[in-house]
């Protein structure tokens, strides 16, 4: 079997990284173990749970369903990057004030999903929020407070339009 490594060049949260990894190395593992960005979580490695969601060139993607080499040259934003972005603060604030997280394992994925969702849907109703979140699984909160948090974040985002 071949262990030959390939070069991967990624801009993550604004910083460019170059690393040499096996082609089979998953983007999720690359972020977590090569770059130490452990806020991106792994819950299924099948694309179902959403815990590994990141922004890939500005759109959400499951980092467990991509090989790092496959997205070489792209820009990735992770929860660490979102946390440093003041304009996105209303989302995390709303999660905090509405108790929209318990164990927190699913939370980075929900936040990343919400970032994109509110960009696409600046004034969502409850049904739209549920649809927008339905591919992220949370086992703790029963979603009630997450739905409230996203509604509140929508109201508080700068300019109302993401």
């Amino acid at each position: 079997m071949s262990f030959s490594k390939v070069e991967v060049r990624l801009t993550v949260n604004g910083t460019e990284y170059v690393r040499s990894v096996e082609p089979r190395y998953l983007l999720a593992d690359f972020l977590r173990h090569e770059l130490g960005l452990t806020g991106t979580h792994i819950g299924c490695e099948q694309g179902v749970c959403g815990a590994c969601t990141v922004l890939l060139d500005g759109r959400t993607a499951r980092s467990c369903l991509h090989f790092a080499v496959q997205v070489s040259g792209s820009e990735v934003t992770t929860i660490e990057g979102v946390s440093a972005d003041e304009s996105l603060k209303p989302i995390q604030d709303a999660f905090h004030h509405n108790h929209a997280l318990q164990c927190g394992y699913c939370t980075p994925g929900f936040v990343m999903t919400t970032v994109e969702f509110l960009k696409d849907n600046p004034a969502p109703d409850e049904a739209a929020i549920r649809r927008g979140l339905t591919n992220n699984v949370c086992r703790c909160t029963g979603y009630v407070n997450i739905i409230k948090a996203v509604a509140e974040a929508a109201d508080n985002m700068p300019g109302g339009e993401g």
Binding site: G39, T40, E80, S83, T107
Partner: peptide, 22 residues
Amino acid sequence: SIPRREDAWLLTGKGCYVDDVP
């Protein structure tokens, strides 16, 4: 209903689950 303290790290990607321990 005091908002939780642990949110500070869990919401920002600074949580430390077992696979995150250096």
